[in-house]
């Protein structure tokens, strides 16, 4: 067999693996969509769950939105600040390497471990109870390292020339960061925050342990209220419901969750593609 045939065979193999990878997402989306679309109704979207598998999922939708928004409100500023330090100030020494290592470690921390920690530290030790606040803070522990990583990459992609030009005009480092570096990096940073929101939205284990059981019939009224989430709702109905009614509701909730998740993720990618195009000609 000559080299060219061999190369073509290998290319075909590579393509096959790519096809499998690309297909996973559409298969799941179509599967959920076709099974879930029939359940979607005004009552389902605006009603409250009752008797386990009946009613709607309004409190869960709102709960998920609250959790995710509060999570990024708490985590994003901290993540961006950390990224600025790591990209612009951090000296190359043991302390910085340690900080980097533990940031990576936190990124790899199993969500159930973060959930356990949230349960022990926030819910019991700080007495936040099983609540919106405990859930959102725990989620922000989970997304923080991802925000840091995305923001640091975005900051490092800002051409050095911008910084030099600003400094040479007599701007301080801090002015340069605020007025030049951050605006130039902002699309990348926003993409990172949005992808983090997507992750938080799809997270189950953390909210299970820290924010609520999932079947809450009420929209959370305060930071201390137990808060339901779509993911917990889906989990409960899929694993503990045994009727077709509960399965179809699990599909309906999955569809709503996927639509929300895709909206966040796709807007993240749109922001970034815009960014890449803008940097393109340089």
């Amino acid at each position: 067999m000559d080299e060219l045939t061999k190369e073509n065979i290998i290319k075909a193999g590579l393509c096959a693996s790519v096809v499998i990878t690309i297909l996973i997402l559409p298969v799941i989306v179509v599967w959920v969509g076709s099974n879930g679309i029939g359940v979607i109704s005004w009552e389902f979207l605006t009603g409250r769950p009752y008797r386990f598998e009946l009613g709607g999922i309004f409190p869960q939708i709102v709960g998920s939105i609250y959790l995710v928004s509060l999570c990024s409100l708490l985590g994003a500023p901290l993540g961006v600040a950390s990224a600025i330090y790591l990209a612009e100030y951090a000296p190359n020494n043991v302390i910085t390497q340690t900080v980097r290592f533990f940031t990576e470690t936190l990124a790899g921390m199993p969500s159930i471990v973060i959930g356990l920690f949230g349960l022990e530290f926030l819910v019991y030790y700080l007495q936040l109870k099983t609540s919106l606040l405990a859930g959102a803070v725990s989620l922000s522990f989970m997304t923080l390292p991802w925000t840091i990583r995305a923001s640091e990459e975005a900051i490092k992609m800002v051409p050095r020339g911008y910084r030099d030009a600003s400094l040479a005009l007599g701007a301080t480092k801090w002015q340069t960061i605020l007025k030049i570096v951050l605006p130039a990096a902002s699309p990348g940073i926003i993409t990172g925050i949005l992808l983090g929101m997507g992750k938080a939205m799809g997270e189950t284990a953390v909210v299970w342990l820290t924010s609520g059981s999932g079947l809450e019939a009420f929209v959370p009224r305060s930071l201390r209220s137990p808060t339901g989430s779509l993911t917990m709702y889906i989990y409960l109905l899929a694993t503990q419901g045994h009727t077709s009614e509960s399965m179809s509701r699990a599909f309906g909730a999955s569809l709503v969750l996927l639509v929300m998740f895709m909206a966040v993720s796709v807007s993240a990618l749109i922001v970034r593609n815009y960014y890449l195009r803008r940097l393109g000609p340089r």
Binding site: Y162, A165, A168, G170, K179, I180
Partner: peptide, 27 residues
């Protein structure tokens, strides 16, 4: 910073900020 204000610098590769022409000069 005062010193660098006294001394202007132009670099090898043109490096305007990704802002408007006006904002670049006004920076």
């Amino acid at each position: 910073y005062e010193l660098r204000k006294r001394v202007g610098m132009v670099f090898q590769k043109p490096n305007p900020f990704p802002q408007s022409v006006y904002d670049n000069v006004a920076y």
